[in-house]
Amino acid sequence: MSAFEGYWDAVDAELAQLPPQPVRDLVPRRCTADFTGYEVRLTSLGPYRIFGYLSVPTGPGPYPAVLTTPRYGSVNNPPHYNDRLRYVTLVIAHRGQRTADSSYAAAYPGLLTDGIADPDRYVYRGIVADCLRAAEYLTALPEVDTSRVAVAGDDLAVLTAARRPLFAALQVAGAPLFRGADQPDADYPAAEFGDHLRAHPQDADAVRRTLALFDPERHAPAVTAAARVEIPGEGGPLSALAEALDAQRYAPTHHGQADNDAADAWLAGRLGAAAMSRFSRMAG
């Protein structure tokens, strides 16, 4: 077994030892005639309690479902209204983000390099586990049609799809988090890697070894979902990732709503739902 496989098998084994102990609380203000909103809490690696916004459409179901992996930042919005109408939706907050910051509060900047010199102490080992736990939870819900589940996000979505082959669709957008160390002139958050290495130049090899474990391109062969990758510009790590995933490539037009609509339509098509634009003067 390679070090790569051993590392991730150990994460799976540790997680399997921890019952998720889910708690699901109704949130009346996020309920309408069309959907019901909840806040959920689950146990992940550590053990550590993580948080999620769950929404379930009204009706007999089962429904297609979408797991949104956390963005890089302290806050994740609850699922969008349009998505709640069509899907069982779960947006989680990983350890350190608001609503999951007891007892660990992430620093921005700082999260991306927290413990990075030791892969067993790197904070993203736990964060990936948080996403895996969320995938297990969502796909076990009775309201979910397990043949129509998608995961959407950045690198974390790729790693989740790779480690849990439960998904029909994988949608990847955003800058590649774990390839930031390859971009010395990048702005934050990727600049965190450069800051760390300026302060701790002796860590260079260790950082490279840790990040290799999280490289989405290395995880891509294990992904079974149909994938779509947004690739701004030619070449670069996202292009290589798309190739490794055998993904549909999407070149953003930079007309943001047009790009959002294209992403929505792809996902809806994969999950057997109707496409919906978030910009509509029919809202009310």
Partner: peptide, 18 residues
Amino acid sequence: ARLTHSYPYEEINEYLRD
């Protein structure tokens, strides 16, 4: 809040539901 269901303005719609 009347024109959109996107956050953050959706917070007002949720508040008014309560």
